[in-house]
Nucleic acid binder design. Structure first.
Ligand SMILES: [Mn+2]
Ligand SMILES: [Mn+2]
Ligand SMILES: [Zn+2]
Ligand SMILES: [Zn+2]
Lengths: 164, 164
DNA sequence: TACTAAACGATAATCATTATCGTTTTCATG
DNA sequence: CATGAAAACGATAATGATTATCGTTTAGTA
């Protein structure tokens, strides 16, 4: 529901830094908003955005994702397979959210709650390090794989990632 | 001090899986032990290991690092610059340690203490996720950069990494 | 000593990402 | 409205890290 509002907000963020919201950029942001729970690679975004703007080039997608990353609208993350993935920040969030990666089926799920509050207080105090952001990923076995034996990603349609 | 002992232990781990500790593998492990606080790329390791075994090939270094990663002797980590880095696990540790990355000077430092104990209890309980390992990195400003203004990595000799 | 599988070194192939360059679009200004 | 400069774009070449291939060497066993 908030898709329209969030698009407007992102438009404002771009304009406030005197960037334009071109049709290509708007289509790219739309794809990210419509696939918020996924973790799309640049190539993934490119294929999805072609439906909305068929003439777009892959280089523009890379440039747009890079720009959105600089503006801290998306986080560029890496799960160890060879590609960068672009993860829209949650509404109002000012830092990256956490992830759970299943080492059996490859599914990636999200933890929106910030679990690091106390930990960061301790790190700032004891290591004299001023924290600006964090990356936290747990590797393990998802609830589905704990029950169903085997289960080597039986095409559930959910976004997955290779190995550990 | 424990370098020799740790080498012996790694040798045992290899043998227990019926892998051989070839001269090339031994030289590679030696480099990792002698640069434990750094976060070397495959290329970095290759250059360092050439002093001990000049005839070694880059492919062998990649193969060895891959093997050590499978045996959970090293963790393959990624700080967002385009290369994988190989990080020896701390003595006796059964999971990856945490990192602090300075977004000003690029220096990477380590937190050996496990700060995630309580967090993991909560995640396992509330998300029904069986945790096997974790990756935690803080991005921020190191104590040195907080004091010294500017400071864009004035060649301190310490291992650094590009940008956020 | 002879056989077989594991490892190796050199190097070609892959593939994600970045750089280049000519063209198009946007927008301020006259 | 026309014009010129800067920002964006699309196509595609270049780069660079990693992986695959293949012929050779080494280690362990019969
Ligand atoms: Mn996410
Ligand atoms: Mn480390
Ligand atoms: Zn699973
Ligand atoms: Zn610093």
């Amino acid at each position: 529901m908030a898709v329209k509002e969030r698009m407007d907000y992102i438009k404002k963020q771009l304009h406030s830094q005197s960037y334009k919201l071109t049709p290509q950029r708007e289509a790219t942001v739309e794809v990210l908003l419509e696939n918020e729970e996924d973790h799309l690679s640049a190539e993934d975004v490119y294929l999805l955005v072609k439906d909305k703007a068929p003439e777009i080039g892959l280089a523009t997608v890379y440039r747009t994702l890079e720009l959105l990353n600089e503006l801290e609208i998306v986080d560029k993350i890496n799960f160890g397979d060879g590609v960068s993935r672009y993860d829209l920040r949650k509404e109002g969030a000012n830092h990256s959210h956490h992830h759970l990666v299943c080492i059996q089926c490859g599914v990636v799920s999200e933890i929106e709650e910030d679990l690091l509050g106390e930990v960061e207080v301790k790190v700032e105090r004891e290591w004299q390090f001023k924290i600006k952001d964090h990356r936290l990923t747990f590797h393990g076995v998802c609830s589905k794989c704990q029950h169903e034996k085997d289960s080597t990603n039986e095409e559930t349609g959910r976004q997955t990632v290779d190995q550990l």
